[in-house]
């Protein structure tokens, strides 16, 4: 689950990676991940290239490895699924530590884990080097519908406020000796969820009133940010270029 607090995502530094316009970074990461996902099944060596490219970005951006590893916990549920694959897959089987596993399943699980992990690390690097507001700005530059950007902006503004309200409710519950232990106690959690919804909805209405009071007439201002220069795009292209080349080379090798 995506725990933690939003303001801890960004790691403050003044590096080349941090300074790149957000729209360039978004496109770079997306292209990188597409290249990784498109790697042919039989190829193994391209993953070394991908991992090396990400490691280079992490070093350039001065993002410490322990931080990246800590945030990789979002991957855990998926790792469990990947570990099940070799057990349930068909085909010739091998024994690993006394458990019969499918050979093709083992290979598939390995590839899945590699691709998934590279995607997660790329996203972690993006969030660690780009302020949330700048990411929204990048999406706006990339022509995401205005209304969607605005909803995300409001969500991002209020998520901390809502989490703080939920935290106070939890403290109030636990102060009276409550712990969620069985299904019967779901009623208490649901009551908190219901109260939280009412508070969120009412706050949404109050925010709307505050907007109207300052002359809102249905049009929100767009976020202001610099346009990307061609040099920015060239710098940002380094990461996906390495990945695309490796992936294409692997396809070429398969085709021969």
């Amino acid at each position: 689950m995506s725990g933690g607090h939003t303001h801890q995502l960004y790691v403050e530094h003044e590096t080349l990676v941090h300074r790149l316009p957000p729209q360039c970074k978004l496109i770079a990461v997306l292209t990188f991940v597409i290249a990784v996902v498109s790697t042919p099944r039989s190829a193994v060596w391209p993953y070394a290239v991908y991992a090396g490219a990400l490691a280079a970005v992490a070093v350039l951006a001065r993002i410490p490895a322990p931080l990246i590893l800590r945030r990789m916990v979002v991957e855990v549920p998926f790792v469990v699924f990947a570990l099940l694959l070799p057990v349930i897959s068909r085909g010739p089987r091998v024994d690993v530590l006394g458990v019969s596993m499918s050979e093709s399943g083992l290979a598939a699980a390995g590839i899945l884990l590699a691709k998934g992990t590279l995607g997660v690390v790329a996203s972690i690097l993006l969030a660690a080097t780009t302020r949330p507001r700048d990411l929204l700005l990048g999406l706006q530059h990339l022509r995401m519908p205005q209304l969607l950007v605005q909803i995300m902006t409001f969500m991002f503004r209020y998520v901390e406020v809502v989490l703080a309200e939920m935290g106070r409710m939890r403290v109030a519950r636990e102060s009276r000796g409550f712990r969620a232990r069985n299904l019967g106690q779901l009623r208490v959690l649901a009551h908190s969820a219901g109260a939280l919804f009412i508070r969120c909805f009412e706050r949404g209405e109050r925010v709307h009133l505050a907007m109207l009071s300052r002359g809102y007439s249905g049009r929100l201002p767009t976020l202001d940010g610099a346009q990307a220069r061609s040099t920015d795009w060239a710098v940002a292209a380094c990461l996906p270029a390495a990945a695309v080349l490796a992936s294409a080379a692997a396809w070429f090798a398969v085709g021969r």
């Binding site: 507001r133 929204l136 902006t153 409001f154 991002f156 209020y158 925010v207 505050a210 976020l223």
Partner: peptide
């Protein structure tokens, strides 16, 4: 918090 709804 109701009044300050923009990112900065």
């Amino acid at each position: 918090d109701d009044q300050l709804f923009m990112p900065t």
